[in-house]
Nucleic acid binder design. Structure first.
Lengths: 210, 210
DNA sequence: TCTCGTCGTTACCAGCCGGTAACGTAGCAC
DNA sequence: GTGCTACGTTACCGGCTGGTAACGACGAGA
């Protein structure tokens, strides 16, 4: 137990123990850390990801991560918060007036899939990961519940009297779960063209909105 | 650091430190522990459940759990293994010959939902939990992949030339994810009658098998 | 060239939790 | 009664990991 090493000469002579990471501006480093964290959280979930690994993936050491983010939880929530309000937008500004139900659904699905492709990490953090303490689970739950409710409202509006009211919620749940799972499936298969996914999804969604 | 306490007289006098659990046969105790573990694993997932909590829920202490199960992982996998082969059975022995597609689908859904009601813990362990090391994740993945493939084969057979082959797999993925999520939703809402869930599910499944 | 703020490092602590050693004791077989 | 076996307990260890203290050094501005 060496209590205090002689302050000068960190390594013996000429052999640097660890390659020092080049010094860059704080903001930029913060983004690199956030990027690495997103990748790891998406792959291994909150509980399965260690701060040490995030630091290594960002090519720095742990205290650097803690300089930019107060805790593991804050880092995770900061990443999720960037996408908190994205989901409802797919159904929001859509011209449901003059367009056939079929083309309308396809347009929405295409926009949504483009988003998933561009933000796969956030999607996986939201819908693949289930770990974390109560606060984290509550956050994810809030986001996905909002998505489900927006979809439920959309269904109720489009389907009208065709669907008994007590079936709106289970149908919305079925669709959000199914679409979330389909998106995760697609994220793992970059070779599958978007049109195939749109087609498969449209076939299932159609009976709920018409 | 008391190295060795005097062997006799564990508590001072007359005040039992912990109410000793009544002694019962090993097999029966093992089942009680498995039952408690199933409840906790279903609610909090693998990583979120502590062996100490399982022991407490079974009204024993930790070493008793370890007498019946070698490790946390073995306990978890033992619970899952009981249901490993259940999923394909819903589509297996069904008389697809003389029955309309609609009644056939409804029969399958009803049998499946009855199973979910009776085995909610296993269902949640399979489809809500995502934590655990590689071996555990591989086990769950194998089970749900099997389910998806069986469903895909069913779709391919029923839909026939109606559906392009490259859409069979994403459709199966969409349905398994959707149905799994719907089941979890229903588990949390015992007041919802089975018929409502069957109706909502049938509406979505129909276009894939006809 | 000197100084100071920020970027980066090493080495460490503390708490949680899976797992175990060692020890009691209830009750069935005889 | 008296063992003997299996059921049950207390008390502990060790590793993993989130988080921190203390220190070093690069580089922009004076």
């Amino acid at each position: 137990m060496a209590t205090a090493r002689p302050p000068t000469a960190p390594a013996a002579a000429g052999a640097p123990t660890r390659r020092r990471t080049p010094r860059i501006a704080g903001d930029r480093r913060r983004e690199l850390i956030a990027l690495a964290a997103g990748r790891l959280f998406a792959a291994d979930g909150y509980a399965g990801t260690r701060m040490e690994d995030i630091a290594a993936a960002a090519e720095v050491t742990k205290p650097m991560v803690y300089r930019h983010f107060a805790s593991k939880k804050e880092l995770y929530l900061a990443l999720l918060a960037r996408h908190e309000d994205d989901l409802p937008t797919f159904l929001a500004d859509v011209d449901s007036a003059h367009a056939s139900a079929d083309t309308l659904v396809r347009q929405i699905l295409e926009r949504w899939l483009d988003y998933v492709r561009a933000n796969g990490h956030a999607w996986a953090m939201l819908f693949r990961d289930h770990s974390g303490d109560d606060e984290i689970q509550a956050f994810r739950r809030r986001v996905s519940l909002t998505a489900r409710d927006v979809l439920a409202a959309f269904i109720a509006e489009r389907a009208g009297a065709q669907m008994p009211s007590e079936q709106v919620e289970p149908t919305a749940e079925l669709l959000t779960s199914g679409l979330a799972g389909l998106a995760l499936w697609w994220i793992d298969r970059p070779e599958v063209p978007r049109s195939v996914v749109v087609e498969a999804a449209a076939r299932m969604v159609a009976p709920a909105v018409r």
